[in-house]
Design a protein around this nucleic acid. Structure first.
Lengths: 92, 92
DNA sequence: ATGTGTTACGAGCCACGTAACAATT
DNA sequence: AATTGTTACGTGGCTCGTAACACAT
């Protein structure tokens, strides 16, 4: 699992559509589709139902979505927390 | 930034030593050292003080460590949350 | 000289994009 | 036929490990 996979998952979950999510991520469809497949494979669970119109979240996907968002938000928070402590003071 | 980099950072922070952390991660020193350097480069901040005995966390590193641990814990939680919802029930 | 982290460099893997495919409407 | 997601396949880049390095003790 990678942060990229999580970002891909959230984008597809929100768009309900691999094509649109790919445009939003500045990526082509195949890699994005592979991200989702890899994630599902790694988790051992399908996250989306494939319809002829796009992708709809399954219950496992909805559960995972909350966690994925929290993780990505925490990453942003981590970056922000460190910016501003740039000086290499040893702080004793 | 990648989850691998975060795992590497936590290991080095806990061991205070790239060599020991590398053994713990079943990795050789150079890639691990590069993970830390890449992280510092991406964050624009030094996270460790290099001593002749090893690596000691700087204030920015200590701040980042909390976040890194939380992120990794959340990843584990996300995986556990999905395991057990394996059946593709549509749940309405 | 021993032990630390880092840089050079070559090889293998990974992930992208284009193109072709499968399937539904 | 048009629109969806997926698979094939080749190329570029990334990342590993070995070896060589720089520095301190």
């Amino acid at each position: 699992m990678s942060l990229t996979h999580l970002q891909s998952f959230v984008a597809v979950a929100e768009e309900g559509h691999v094509g649109r999510a790919a445009r939003r991520l500045h990526l082509s469809q195949p890699p994005l589709s592979r991200h989702i497949l890899a994630l599902e494979d790694e988790l051992g669970t399908r996250l989306f139902e494939r319809t002829s119109r796009g992708m709809r979240l399954l219950p496992a996907g909805e559960a995972f979505l909350c966690h994925a968002r929290r993780i990505l938000a925490e990453v942003d928070a981590a970056v922000l927390a460190v910016r501003g402590l740039g000086a290499d003071r040893t702080d004793h």
